[in-house]
């Protein structure tokens, strides 16, 4: 029998890696949609989360809807509306980013093996994935110039945090209330970002954050 949890986690890792390597904005947004769906599916396949009530089901459906459809959709609209150039324009080159991904996964493997005491059995890969996702999100925020990639990085960070919560606990969905709140915040954030980007785009010619330094005085 194919281990579904591991498969999903591997797909998440795949998406993390591809997001580090992708050089097109629209591709990046698509990858984030895939990652969002996979991340919100993860808890469903963990054994002790399997007995869900109808409330839980609705909760996960909303999750998938927001992460997989709503946020990527908004991001797409932002990309389209603001007519941002398609290239991602990295501050840190693609080769270095990929190398960072390697180092990151090595480190998270190490951290996980250190944390083993407090982990429920069978959650090693989950925690590795979570830490890698989190770190890669931070890296994306650091290493790319555009405002929209920073939002995407933040989204990935949130995915990582959500996975860590899943990895470290044995409780059912009620625990996710906090994460759900964060998610809603994020949703609002993405919307505001879209509006602001739209306005910046009207006021200035470019939405490159490196150019925002001029605003400081």
């Amino acid at each position: 029998m194919i281990n579904m949890t591991n498969t999903i986690l591997v797909i998440i890792l795949l998406s993390v890696l591809l997001s580090l390597a992708s050089n097109r904005l629209s591709a990046l947004v698509r990858i984030m949609a895939l990652q969002g769906v996979m991340v919100s599916l993860t808890p469903l396949f963990l054994e002790h989360h399997s007995n869900l009530g109808s409330g839980g089901l609705i909760f996960f459906q909303i999750m998938i809807l927001i992460k997989g459809l709503l946020i990527p959709g908004l991001l797409f609209m932002a990309v389209r509306k603001v007519s941002i150039t398609r290239e991602i324009e990295p501050l840190i080159g693609y080769h270095a980013s990929l190398f960072f991904g390697l180092v990151c996964i090595l480190l998270s493997g190490y951290i996980t093996s250190r944390l083993q005491v407090s982990l429920p059995a069978g959650h090693e890969l989950l925690l590795i994935t979570a830490i890698t996702t989190l770190a890669a999100g931070l890296f994306l925020m650091m290493g790319r110039t555009k405002a929209i990639t920073q939002v995407i990085g933040y989204l990935m960070l949130e995915n990582g945090i959500y996975l860590i919560g899943t990895a470290l606990t044995k409780q059912s969905h009620t625990l996710y209330v906090v994460e759900f709140g964060v998610l809603l915040d994020l949703l609002v954030g993405v919307m505001i970002m879209g509006i602001i980007l739209h306005n910046i785009n009207h006021a200035f010619d470019d939405v490159d954050t490196t150019l925002m330094r001029r605003l400081k005085d």
Binding site: L13, A21, N23, H95, L98, G101, G109, T112
Partner: peptide
């Protein structure tokens, strides 16, 4: 000039898998 990045992605994927195999088998 993007082809090296492409093949490097494939290398990184394989390397990811190898490192994860360490994590899982432990």
């Amino acid at each position: 000039n993007l082809v090296p990045k492409y093949i490097l992605t494939s290398f990184t994927l394989a390397f990811f898998a190898v490192i994860l195999s360490m994590g899982i088998s432990q």
